[in-house]
Design a protein around this nucleic acid. Sequence first.
DNA 1: CATGAATGAGCATTCATTCAT
DNA 2: GATGAATGAATGCTCATTCAT
Lengths: 203, 203, 203, 203
Amino acid sequence: MISAELSKREIIMNASIKVFAAKGYHSCRTLDISKEAGVAYGSLYQYFKSKDDILSSIYRDNWNFLLQRMDLLNQTEKSPAIRIIKIFDFIFRNYEQNPDLIKVMIMEVPKLNQFYGKEHQELYFRFFSGLAEIIAEGQKKDLLSKDISPIIAAFVIYGAADNTIRQYVYNTDFESMHFPLEEAKNQIINYFIPGYLIKKTGK
Amino acid sequence: MISAELSKREIIMNASIKVFAAKGYHSCRTLDISKEAGVAYGSLYQYFKSKDDILSSIYRDNWNFLLQRMDLLNQTEKSPAIRIIKIFDFIFRNYEQNPDLIKVMIMEVPKLNQFYGKEHQELYFRFFSGLAEIIAEGQKKDLLSKDISPIIAAFVIYGAADNTIRQYVYNTDFESMHFPLEEAKNQIINYFIPGYLIKKTGK
Amino acid sequence: MISAELSKREIIMNASIKVFAAKGYHSCRTLDISKEAGVAYGSLYQYFKSKDDILSSIYRDNWNFLLQRMDLLNQTEKSPAIRIIKIFDFIFRNYEQNPDLIKVMIMEVPKLNQFYGKEHQELYFRFFSGLAEIIAEGQKKDLLSKDISPIIAAFVIYGAADNTIRQYVYNTDFESMHFPLEEAKNQIINYFIPGYLIKKTGK
Amino acid sequence: MISAELSKREIIMNASIKVFAAKGYHSCRTLDISKEAGVAYGSLYQYFKSKDDILSSIYRDNWNFLLQRMDLLNQTEKSPAIRIIKIFDFIFRNYEQNPDLIKVMIMEVPKLNQFYGKEHQELYFRFFSGLAEIIAEGQKKDLLSKDISPIIAAFVIYGAADNTIRQYVYNTDFESMHFPLEEAKNQIINYFIPGYLIKKTGK
DNA sequence: CATGAATGAGCATTCATTCAT
DNA sequence: GATGAATGAATGCTCATTCAT
């Protein structure tokens, strides 16, 4: 059996995600985490430097995962447009598979940026730069509109996805009032991306 | 003399914005706020129930201000597209005039949503509903593309603006590496909005 | 009209008695007192040095009142035994007429003794000394038992009255479970005093 | 080895008794307690919920100790009169062995808001009910005077002891001016109890 | 005399982290 | 590695008192 067991480190991280999402980073105790993880709270410090470090690790791991995904796509998928759509898709699916994780990523980021500013900016930078490169490539190949600079396009695309998910996370009412996130994602991908990025061919 | 004096409440709020932006909500002491405001420690509690209440008030006031702006626009501006552009414009200008305020709004809001969920969701709801109504109106008048549901379009538009500003706030390097926020705004307004919202006229 | 109006000082004291009895000295704010009294809270300090001073004044006034009563009795009533009974009677009636006052006297005395120890010990001393003198007089006149020293007899008599009232104040259940304070008082006066103080005549 | 070591909880309680007696409940810091106990600041909160809880626990423990004593006496001592005398004796000895404790019980406990709560009234109730039962038993056996209701007799007896001790606690002058507490106790037991409780046999 | 905004000293409590077992 | 008792720094808030009006 492959990866039959989660390492204790992973158990602690998963417990933390659950607890952070439920109570918020500041409102939960390290005790809450250790209870959820089923370990002694002294043990947390054998796997993480501090409570902050747990949050930071969650953040780092997941952002790196997205970056890896993007690297992989760059190697396997020719079409820049499809790559963008797949990144989109990945971000939304991520939320649906682990909403707690996204809650943590969205809610606790500010805290992190204060203390790990440089390190985290680096991750942001690589993501947006990478996305911008894909867009630039599409523009060069005359597949995407050149009317917007790639980096701004990257901000806009990610912002659209992020804010939509954000509203589903925060405003639980929206969901039932309107439609499932899946459909929201499709609307954005189907209508926004093509209309915006794909070159509005002269004719 | 116009607005000769700020009320003590306003003085405290402005000082708080400055301090929250500089040190972060959690890292600053209430003492820092009172010093910055030049008022006695205890005076904070004559105007606000708690430290949380200060942050919450900043959030509420400014979100309400945006809502008022939107109401005004609805009464004075016929064109839905121009209304959207002006809201956009307002959001960006807001940041340029008071970056500290936006830092606070963006960085510390998640904290609030945990404690003031209902109240703040209401403000979000009104904003996005309002924006969606403008879009729906444009669709009805056949001015905007009907290919996307108004509420999702609202999420996307705001997310684009918010995330772009966010990157300028967090990643100070981006600015110098690329171009001023003003230009970013124009790119988004000029290329994104028309391409996305304005009806892709048949044929 | 005689004493048509209470002085503001008296109004504040009466309000304080009510508030202290209801919430306890430590749990009430000077604001509570001023509201109850219907004056601005700054005004309290025109009539009293401090919050402590209000409590201390209540204590002093009422203890002095009892001492005056005792002095008067010493001048008008020949029989030591009847004098004692009348002091008893006065203490119990006092409670029935103003239970709040007694609550304050009983509940908040400890607080006072810390800060006004000397001053208040003096009042205690005069009361118990006075009571002891009455008893001694009765013993000298061969009317009261000489088997107990007067000062201890004074402690016992007052303790009996005080503790009985205390239980009625604290343990509101006792009252309904048994009988009214009036009857308790009579039982103590009728059976206790004679049995104890009045000389058990040899024959 | 018998009771070789005090538990940390007991160490903290004993230190608290000392500090509360010396400075008063409200005037001492939790820091004072921890210093006196020789434990870390935060350790107080591993054994007690709050500062209030420490005082409340002192009260509860000691009152329960008295109640146990009474239960034991009821099982081992036939004579109701002697049982009462022994309870008396116990109360006085308690003070002499640990005056600080009695100071706290008398002076500081009433300051607790909880003091007026159900839990504390319950302890009072059980004590006075128990004492009343002993008296009632004596009356039934025709050993004690039936001229007073048992519960009032209980109030009177305890009040006599309590107030006498109280004067020794508060008014340190009394002691030297008169005689040691031991003698006061004997006077009360020897003259008061018999004269009052023991049936004044007809004739 | 009356007012109540302003003041700021004072304090209980929390909780991340350590470390002896 | 695992444990959890011990630690103590850190801080928001209260509220009696003052004093300018």
